[in-house]
């Protein structure tokens, strides 16, 4: 056993990379849920993004086009969910689950010709001498652009929800769609936009897996990351900053677990893998039992809206 082999700096740097896909997807789902919609199809949108991004990046030779395609692919799939739940008023839980099934099948079909191929590489952002600062250089200045983008999106989402009129409207729609409708806001339009955004972010998260983190295409490669993203939104009590915390905590437990093993410690892997979920439940209980503070869950979450009356 040799704990000195575990370098905290490196641990932080690698957990940032490990957490980025779930962070992106969770931020997208945050916006969707803030608008009062529960889309359980994150896994399906992520894997669709992963394959769309991979295919386009390989065909065009440009990872950037790949990322765009991934966002488009995720958004299109999300809009399918949007049309069903918002226009045809289907049940969100069932539709979201069906979306995952659909996305897994679709991605496997698209990806058939892309097995065993290396995608065009994405380099780290060059910060010059900054990258050589001890400790901080490794943590802050030696990542690829998507890691920075995901962090910027955390700040952006936080600011947008809190300080902009559009953010306020979105939250109003999520809190009470009847009231928002009465005020003259287009509830369905706003929700569709939020759903598409959620899909694009999930797609980007998936493409981060297939183009940078792994990088390869294989069927089912998201391996449950979409479900973790859902859990993180809850863990975060629907706040952007805490989404970051939650994603890094989840990623951190995985990376730490592997590092402890590499250092020769016999870790009870199953029990450690359970811990993030148990912690999330605990956080939920603590938050919801404190009745003075609002839980943060949008009041209209998952409820069907129909402007007939």
């Amino acid at each position: 056993m040799d704990f000195s082999a575990i370098n905290p700096t490196v641990l932080i740097a690698s957990l940032m990379v490990a957490s980025t896909p779930i962070l992106l997807a969770a931020l997208g789902e945050l916006i969707v849920e803030k608008a009062g919609v529960l889309n359980l199809g994150v896994e399906g949108m992520m894997i669709t993004g992963a394959v769309c991004g991979f295919a386009v990046a390989v065909e065009s030779g440009s990872p950037w086009l790949g990322f765009l395609a991934a966002m488009a692919g995720g958004a299109v799939l999300a809009l399918l969910f949007g049309v069903l739940t918002q226009l045809l008023l289907s049940n969100q839980v069932a539709t979201g689950l069906a979306l995952t099934l659909f996305g897994l099948g679709l991605s496997a079909l698209i990806g058939q010709g892309y097995i065993g191929i290396k995608p065009p590489p994405v380099g780290d952002v060059n910060f010059g001498p900054l990258a050589d600062i001890p400790v901080l250089g490794r943590i802050l200045f030696r990542h690829d652009i998507i890691v920075y983008f995901s962090l910027a999106m955390v700040a952006g989402t936080w600011w947008w929800l809190k300080s902009t009129r559009a953010g306020l409207i979105l939250r109003a729609v999520g809190e009470s769609h009847e009231a928002a409708h009465a005020l003259g806001y287009n509830v369905i339009g706003i929700r569709l936009a939020a759903i598409a955004f959620g899909g694009a972010m999930a797609g980007l998260g998936g493409a981060y897996l297939s183009l940078i983190r792994v990088p390869q295409w294989t069927e089912g490669m998201t391996a449950g990351a979409g479900w973790i993203a859902l859990a993180i939104v809850v863990f975060a009590s629907w706040r952007a900053g805490r989404v970051l915390l939650g994603a890094y905590l989840f990623g951190g437990v995985t990376v730490l677990q592997l590092n402890l093993q590499a250092a020769g410690l016999a870790v009870p892997v199953e029990y450690l893998s359970m811990s993030p979920y148990l912690i999330t439940i605990l956080v939920l209980v603590i938050m919801s039992s404190d009745r003075r503070k609002a839980l943060g869950a949008p009041a209209s979450l998952g409820r069907v809206f129909h402007a007939s009356s």
Binding site: L80, A94, L99, L101, F102, G105
Partner: peptide
């Protein structure tokens, strides 16, 4: 099998 999965997804939709 992916085509079958997709087909089931469509049926549900």
């Amino acid at each position: 099998s992916a085509a079958i999965q997709l087909f089931q997804g469509m049926l549900l939709f």
